[in-house]
Design a protein around this nucleic acid. Structure first.
Lengths: 107, 107
DNA sequence: GATTATTAATTCGAATATTCAGATATCTGC
DNA sequence: GCAGATATCTGAATATTCGAATTAATAATC
């Protein structure tokens, strides 16, 4: 690659976007709008198995996107940085726009 | 999944983000700021092999993100919808911010 | 119009990564 | 110890990535 500086940004950007490229992770992140949540609540809200939710949360934690707090038997997860939701919303708007555009084309 | 409507959006959102979750694709998309480009130009600009660039372009075309135009032996690719770059820039800003934040933490 | 060179697309297989859920382990409060 | 909540391990299935090799399309030249 020619431009190393740019390439590093492409890498970081790509890694960041991988976070958003899975529906369960998106559902989890979306759920954090209402503040911190327990694993079991995320399980029931997403409909995924406990194992799957826990693994995705573990991934998000490894990436430094969420942080945990234990209270008794419950573990609360929350977003570290609200800007993640900012990015989420911006992309979401584009997705909805373009989907509407496609729907219009199909009609 | 409980909420089907929301789930479909999560799926679409995730698919959309997959587009951005690969550095070569990002480099290609970024390159389209300067307008349409030939495959060979994208090859030399990204440093990836012709095969790889062509495959990624083929993927982007299948997703309806780029369109092609043939002129002699050259094939020009261009973005269909500039909003893709809008989304790109918005996420990019967040990535750069958070990276700077991490650099500050590390220092 | 056959041949050759150039550009791009496709095919193929190997390597790697991701996703998922069942099973099991860990942690905590009772 | 027991029950509930969460984490981790494991293997199977699937998806992604990559480049070498091949094929296809077009232009230029003879």
């Amino acid at each position: 690659m020619r431009n190393h500086r740019a390439w590093e940004i492409y890498q970081a950007h790509a890694e960041f976007c991988k976070t958003f490229s899975h529906p369960v992770r998106l559902a989890i992140l979306d759920g954090f709008r209402e503040g911190e949540k327990t694993v079991s609540r995320l399980v029931s809200e997403t409909g995924a198995t406990q194992s799957t939710v826990s693994q995705q949360l573990s991934l998000l934690r490894k990436l430094g996107i969420v942080r945990t707090r234990r209270e008794g038997r419950l573990v609360y997860y929350k977003l570290v940085d609200q800007r993640v939701l900012k990015a989420y919303d911006l992309v979401d708007a584009v997705v909805r726009e373009t989907r509407m555009g496609q729907a219009k084309i199909l009609a």
